[in-house]
Amino acid sequence: MTNPAEPAQRKIIHIDMDAFFASVEQRDNPALRGLPVAVGGSSRRGVVAAASYEARTFGVRSAMPSVTAQRRCPDLVFVKPRFDVYQQVSRQIRAIFAQHTDLIEPLSLDEAYLDVTSNHQNIASATHVAQMIRADIARETGLTASAGVSYNKFIAKLASDQNKPDGLCVIRPEQGPAFVAALPVKRFHGVGPRTAEKMAALGIVTGADLAAKSEQWLLTHFGSWGSYLHGAARGIDHRPVRPDRIRKSIGGERTYHDDIWAESALRDALESIADIVWERVERSEAQGRTVTLKARYADFQTITRARSLGAPVADRTTFGQIGHALIDQILPLQNGIRLLGLTLSGLSHAEDDEQSDERQPELPFG
């Protein structure tokens, strides 16, 4: 008998486009096909917004400083982003999703959750629905997508990354716990490099290691997130697909191996983070009025400074200028900076989010 406190078994698909920005550029410019391509600026302060699979073989990744990417791949071809084109293609893809279900939760321009437990074609097999969607995307856009099919969001997202690019992975309910147990925790959504390091120091490397810990132990070491981890390690995730899910804030932060003491280095770091965050802002098609700077000193004291405008922040230049004005408020530095973050909030379409906005994405190291 089903526990009435638990939802009925769902059929969830996570669709993730393959190297989306770079693939669009290679599609539209045949001369780029087969070459290592990075979408982003090539200047000293530039940041890679997306990398083709050819570039990834050299270790080039999104959010990486362009100078680091160029060093890893001397033949890397930089292409300026065309967000208007990416948004147009994203709308095509979402129209394909809408042919199958109204329960669509976009995470960004290039990925989304779909609940196809009940779908417009009354197709019993979620795997068949995923195959249809991938075929329609390829036919209508000339791009490939990978899909994960499972009984909850957590495993569906993990599965979509399992056979990339242009892959399909199906994890059935009876396979879920074993699938999670065998994976490294660094692949779990929400476990960034710093959290993975903390887990490793606590003896947690795989899902099985995580499942061996009690919920109380996880709560002690990871706060309220511990309950979610306890369930996820066992293949349990009751979060529904929320078509009305809209973020309250968009931001990012970076922790540095070496503390920053010099003003010039601090401002360069801010520019790099601002590039990445503004790219996320444009991808989400959001508008916000408040810019918040977060800084954590070498002694772990954390401070924030914020400025709100009467109208939405207009562009990347304005966003960066406000960030520098907030930097002015913490100068001169009395201690080294080990973490720096920048956030845009007060979004014009803000509603309740399912996750805390204070946990900003950790930006990968160059």
Rank of each mutant, 00 (worst) to 15 (best):
T2C: 06
Q9S: 10
I15N: 00
D16E: 07
M17W: 09
A19I: 04
A19V: 03
F20I: 02
V24G: 01
E25Y: 01
E25A: 06
R27F: 01
D28V: 07
D28N: 15
N29K: 15
A38E: 01
A38M: 06
V39F: 03
A50R: 02
A50K: 04
A51Q: 09
A51I: 15
A51E: 06
Y53M: 11
E54V: 10
T57M: 14
V60H: 00
A63V: 11
P65M: 04
S66W: 01
S66R: 05
V67L: 10
T68M: 07
T68D: 08
C73S: 15
S90M: 10
R91A: 12
A95V: 03
Q99S: 11
H100M: 09
H100W: 14
T101D: 03
D110T: 09
E111S: 06
D115M: 06
N119C: 12
Q121Y: 13
I133V: 15
E140S: 13
L143I: 04
L143V: 03
F154R: 00
Q162D: 11
Q162E: 14
N163W: 05
K164V: 05
G167C: 05
L168N: 06
C169H: 10
I171F: 05
E174C: 00
A178V: 06
P184L: 14
K186E: 14
T195G: 00
L210M: 15
A211T: 07
A212V: 10
K213G: 08
F222H: 03
S227V: 14
L229N: 06
H230R: 12
A232S: 12
R234E: 02
R234C: 01
R245A: 15
I246C: 06
K248V: 11
T255E: 04
D259P: 01
I260W: 02
E263T: 09
L266D: 02
L270W: 04
E271V: 13
S272N: 13
D275H: 15
D275N: 15
W278M: 05
E279A: 13
E282A: 12
G288F: 02
T292Q: 10
R296E: 14
F300H: 10
I303W: 05
T304E: 08
R305V: 07
A306S: 11
P312T: 04
H324A: 13
D328A: 12
D328K: 12
G336V: 03
R338Q: 05
G341Q: 04
H349G: 08
E354W: 03
Q355P: 00
S356V: 13
D357Q: 12
P361T: 05
G366P: 15
